[in-house]
Simulated assay, not measured.
Amino acid sequence: MTGRDLARIALFAALIIALGMVVVPLPGGVPITGQTLGVMIAGAVLGARRGSLSILLVLVLAAVGLPVLAGGRGGLGVFVGPTVGYLIGWIAAVVVIGLIMRTGPLRWWRTGLATLLGGIGAVYLFGIPLQALVLGIDLGPTALSSLAFLPGDLIKAVAATVLTLALARAYPPAFGDAPDRGRERVREHAAA
């Protein structure tokens, strides 16, 4: 882990925190936020390991009480509330996204698939059941109510794909893969 790696991790944690200021409250205690956009980009750019560390940094800051989550929330209470599954899902999301992104050269379809499966699928896989458990509601109605998030999450997946590809062209060293292999993949994409 180099100083550059630590800086990338901190930068993406800050991005995720800043995107938490974009909040649309919904009934059921789970707001629509911009933070999942940051999670998607962190997984695509940093990869599974460094992306996970950026998420863990945000969650540790929240656990010690700093207002780093959507709407300025923080403290241990968020880890027993209806959003806990979504927060855990962020870790799974960056792992899934990072692993898919590292299966071959950077391409728009691979980036889009990664953000859909990780940024939406993995987050919902943890978020919906734990929200149902915490609220004491059946899984079916909870899953149905979560459909309100889907249009926004699809927009975020498209935005994450576009922003990742733009970053690959503008600044290839931002990618947190193994230094030579990651840059080579980004160069392949930029040349295509």
Rank of each mutant, 00 (worst) to 15 (best):
G104A: 13
I155Y: 06
L46S: 05
P67V: 02
G47T: 08
P179Q: 13
S52M: 12
I88C: 09
V162I: 14
R181K: 15
V39F: 06
P151Q: 02
T33Y: 11
G85F: 04
Y171A: 14
R8L: 15
R102V: 10
E188D: 15
V64S: 01
A168R: 03
A160S: 15
L144M: 15
G182I: 05
L125S: 09
A13R: 00
T115W: 01
V95R: 08
R107D: 13
R107C: 03
T33V: 14
P173M: 10
Q35W: 02
T115D: 10
A192P: 07
A48C: 01
L76I: 12
T111M: 10
W90M: 11
G104Q: 11
A70M: 02
T111V: 15
A178Q: 15
V22A: 13
A92D: 09
I91D: 06
G3V: 08
I91E: 14
L135T: 15
L15W: 02
L59V: 00
G176H: 06
I32Q: 07
V45W: 08
G89S: 10
R107A: 14
V78N: 04
Q131A: 15
A70P: 00
G34R: 02
V80M: 13
A160R: 12
S146E: 14
R187T: 14
L113V: 14
P82N: 11
G75F: 05
R4A: 14
I9K: 00
A93M: 06
G34D: 07
P179G: 12
Y124M: 02
G136L: 09
F79Q: 13
V80N: 10
P67I: 02
L61K: 03
T115Q: 12
A92L: 15
G51E: 08
R181N: 14
A92G: 15
A170V: 13
G3S: 11
L144K: 15
G81Q: 06
I55T: 01
I97S: 01
V58S: 01
G71V: 08
P31L: 04
W109V: 12
P25Y: 00
A48V: 05
L116W: 04
V78Q: 04
G121M: 07
P31W: 04
W108Q: 07
L106Y: 09
G182N: 07
G28F: 12
G140P: 03
